[in-house]
Design a protein around this nucleic acid. Structure first.
Lengths: 221, 221
DNA sequence: ATACTGACTTTGATTAGTCAAAGTCAAGGT
DNA sequence: ACCTTGACTTTGACTAATCAAAGTCAGTAT
């Protein structure tokens, strides 16, 4: 069995690999920062993972998951996201605090318990943040979502996913009513002011910076 | 925060200390066996725990929890037993398999999640095996139970607790209907044959060896 | 071309937890 | 009293994961 450290590295490589457009190399510096370790530590670890055929490693260039590494990463992600949803739906924890809890529990939950949780929740497809939950076979249905920073104006939209786990940011979104499932339209976008003006039903217009808007993913309503 | 290894040592010392009648010294050999480590490993660990004032250590004699060590042990035990009950009651896992699951989860559950579980279960006082659940303040209400190997004949009794976690043994008990809450009487006891003859309502008499009978704790019905 | 810079790798050391094997102690038998 | 035995402790070594600091490389700027 892989240690929880190994699981965390694989998960992180997967997460870093996604926004880079699929199967690109993740630079070591980026990984080291994400894992909050010194670059040397990441190098050592990655060499070990390469030895175990979980990643391919090109020195001074970066790292990429192998098929085996990706399957393991997706399994960890499945545990993480099912646990998050379980904590919210069953134990009533707050949206904003479950990420850190799940960070620990994802390494302690057995397959047996995980499948019970999955069944109890009715085989859900997304977690409380809208992140897709991989299947037990390691498949993720690709979402084709746009962020509020890039999609068209005046179209009926629905929030599908929040691409950030910061408790403070999530709490702000909750206070503002910007949670997955909510309908809205973009009234205007001002590149100079670096801001987006939103309109939610029964609410006064709300202005968001581009950086924040980019973390809110939507689909046509 | 104590590592899960430290938590396991403290929990084990507590469990070994109980049958020895309260606050006796636990011999190092016994502890090493229970922890499945070599004697030298246990010695090293215990010296570190003594340094941290979690145990008092008398070389070549044994080890005993301090107040601080006992509080920590009870906190771990609370997590373990609440998790066990949660797995049985909510996720429908089998009585016999939850011990090993809880062994991992007890180190990953935060106080916040634990108290939610406690509330969800209605602040229970015993786990699925009848083991008492310490309060969040680290108090255990002492049970005054007798085992089937020692209590009176022909008295109406009720099973209160099973003092063993072996899955195979627990599965046998389940098949035989010997689970906490069940009423029975002892028909006879034969010291030479090393056996006890039980009578459950609506069942034919059942014979048990003394070693097994000693693990079944009962109270007057 | 040469040197600078920033990103990455190597090296040496540290901590937690462990084992194997050698050493030590205390208790009991002769 | 002495020796044996079994229980415990000490020692030396190992693995996983980490950091600090020194070393190296590749690309950019002069």
């Amino acid at each position: 069995m892989p240690s929880s450290t190994v699981e965390n590295y694989l998960k992180q490589i997967y997460l870093e690999q996604q926004p880079l457009g699929g199967s690109d190399l993740v630079p070591m510096g980026r990984l080291a920062t994400a894992m909050a370790v010194t670059p040397g530590t990441a190098t050592t670890m990655i060499k070990a993972l390469a030895e175990a055929n979980l990643v391919t490693y090109e020195p001074r260039t970066g790292v990429r998951l192998t098929k085996a590494g990706e399957q393991l990463a997706l399994h960890v992600l499945r545990r993480h996201r099912l646990v998050e949803l379980f904590l919210v739906k069953v134990l009533g924890l707050d949206w904003s605090e479950v990420h850190d809890e799940a960070e620990h529990l994802e390494h302690a939950v057995s397959d047996k318990v995980l499948e019970r949780i999955d069944a109890y929740l009715g085989h859900p497809s997304v977690d409380p943040h809208g992140d897709p939950i991989p299947t037990s076979k390691g498949k993720v249905t690709p979402q084709k979502l746009q962020s509020l920073a890039e999609c068209d104006l005046n179209q009926p939209l629905r929030i599908a996913r929040i691409a950030d786990q910061e408790p403070a940011f999530l709490q702000f979104l909750h206070r503002s009513g910007l949670i997955p499932g909510v309908a809205l339209t973009i009234q205007s976008r001002d590149p100079h002011a670096d801001s987006v003006l939103l309109k939610l039903a029964n609410k006064s217009p709300l202005s968001l910076g581009t950086a924040a808007a980019a973390k809110i993913l939507v689909e046509p309503a």
